[in-house]
Design a protein around this nucleic acid. Structure first.
Lengths: 229, 229
DNA sequence: GTCTATACGGCGATAGAC
DNA sequence: GTCTATCGCCGTATAGAC
C-alpha cells in the first residue's frame, strides 16, 4: 500500500506538471503551482524527482516510449506488406508517422492532449528544441527517413530532410491547440478536432514530399533513363 | 541629442529583449538580464516600457507592420498580374506569403532572426499563441485565404483553413532555428539556410494545398468543364 | 533620461521531525 | 512518504536624487 500510494502521488505530480508545463512553458510555472495542482506539499516533488528540471525530463519520458513504439510498429506493418519490387508509398509512410499520434489523441484526449501541446512548445523552442527532440525522437525519425528514401530512391537527401522539417512543424502546431485556427475560421474548424487533422495531414504532407523530391521534370527524366543521379 | 539618445537606448533595450525572449521565452528571462545585455539600468526599462509585458508587446509590434506590409504588397503584385479569367495560382499566392519573410531573413539575418524565432515560439504557445498571432497576423492571413479560395474555387473552406494551419506550422518551425535539422541530417542541412528553405517551401506547401483542396477526381471534373460554380 | 536604493513577495531547494 | 520550517537569492516594480 505504501508502494501503491507512492505511485499514485508521483503520477499526480507528473500529471499536474505535464498540464502546467504544456500551458505555460517550463519557466512559466513554479514548483509550488505544480504541487498545489497535484494536491501535495512542495517538498514531495523534490523527494520524488530531485529537481524541477528532472521532473520535466520525467514528464517527457513517461509517454515518449509509448508513442514511438506505436509508430515503429505502424511503420513495420507498412514495410512488411511491401518488398523491393513494390516499395511502400510516401502516403503510407507518412500515415504511419502521423496516424498513431493523432489516433491516440483523438481516443484518449483528456489524458494525452497536454503532453502533445508540450511537445509542440519544445519543438519550437531554441532552448530545448534541438537537444530534447533529437534525444527522444530522432532515432525513430531516422527510420522513417530511410523508408522515405526507399520510396523516392532518386531524391536528393537534403530535400527529404527539409520535407521532414515541414512535416514536423505542421504536425506539432496541430498539437499545440492554441485556438488560433478556431479564431481564424470563425468556428468552422476546431483546433482540437483530431479527426479533421487526421483526414487531411497525410495527403497534404505526402503531396508536398512528392513535389519536392520528385518534381515533374525530374520524374519524366527519371522514367526516360532511370538511375541517373 | 536628448531625443537621439532616447531612441538609441530604447532600441538597445528592444534588441536585447527580442534576442533573449526569442532564446528563452517570456518567462525564461528576467528584466535584470535584459537590461544587463542592453547595458543600462533596470529602472530604465520600466521608464520606457512600463512593464515586462508591455516591453514584450513593443518587441512584437516593432517589426510586425514591416513584414505584413511586404507580404501584402507581394500579394497585390500577384493579383494585379491576373484577372478573373486567369486567376493567380496557388504557388504564386504561397510564394507571396512566404518569400518576403524568408528573403528578409536571408538578407538581414543578424537583425531579424531573433524576431522570427520569437514568432515561432509564440505561434506554438497555448498561452500567447491564439491571442497574439490572431491580433497581429490574422487580418493579413484572411486576405491570403481569400486569394487561395479564388485560386481553388470549388474547395471546401475547411480544407483551406487546415492547409493554412499546416503552412503556418511548417513556416514557423523553419524560423525557430532550433538546430534539430542540423543534428538530424548530420550537417547536410543547416537550420539557418534560408535560401534552402525558400527554394523548397512554396513548392511543398502548394502541392499540399492542391492535394487537399483539389484532389484528382475533382481536378479532372474541373478541367472537363471550366468555370463551373 | 539616468541611476541608487529599496520594497515585498515568491523562487528552487534542503534539513529534519513525524 | 509526508509535512513544517527555513535558507539565500532573485523577481517585478517604484520613489526620488541627480
Amino acid at each position: 500500500m505504501a508502494q501503491k500510494k507512492k505511485k499514485a502521488t508521483s503520477d499526480r505530480i507528473l500529471n499536474a506538471a505535464e498540464r502546467l508545463f504544456a500551458q505555460h512553458g517550463f519557466d512559466g510555472v513554479t514548483m509550488r503551482q505544480i504541487m498545489r495542482a497535484a494536491g501535495a506539499d512542495v517538498a514531495l516533488a523534490y523527494y520524488h524527482f530531485k529537481s524541477k528540471r528532472d521532473l520535466f525530463d520525467a514528464v517527457m519520458l513517461r509517454r515518449v516510449e509509448v508513442v514511438n513504439e506505436m509508430r515503429l510498429q505502424a511503420l513495420e506493418r507498412v514495410e512488411r506488406s511491401h518488398d523491393k519490387d513494390d516499395p511502400a508509398t510516401v502516403e503510407e509512410i507518412i500515415a504511419a508517422f502521423v496516424h498513431p499520434l493523432l489516433d491516440q489523441l483523438a481516443r484518449n484526449q483528456e489524458e494525452w492532449r497536454h503532453y502533445y501541446a508540450l511537445i509542440a512548445q519544445i519543438n519550437n523552442s531554441p532552448e530545448f528544441g534541438g537537444a530534447v527532440m533529437t534525444k527522444y525522437f530522432d532515432p525513430l525519425v531516422r527510420r522513417f527517413i530511410q523508408a522515405l528514401r526507399r520510396a523516392m530512391p532518386d531524391s536528393d537527401p537534403a530535400d527529404i530532410f527539409w520535407g521532414y522539417q515541414f512535416l514536423s512543424g505542421a504536425l506539432t502546431l496541430t498539437f499545440a491547440e492554441t485556438g488560433r485556427l478556431d479564431n481564424l475560421s470563425e468556428g468552422l474548424c476546431r483546433s482540437d478536432d483530431m479527426d479533421a487533422a487526421n483526414a487531411r495531414m497525410p495527403a497534404f504532407i505526402a503531396a508536398g514530399f512528392r513535389a519536392l523530391c520528385m518534381p515533374k521534370p525530374k520524374l519524366a527524366q527519371l522514367k526516360a533513363k532511370p538511375k541517373k543521379k
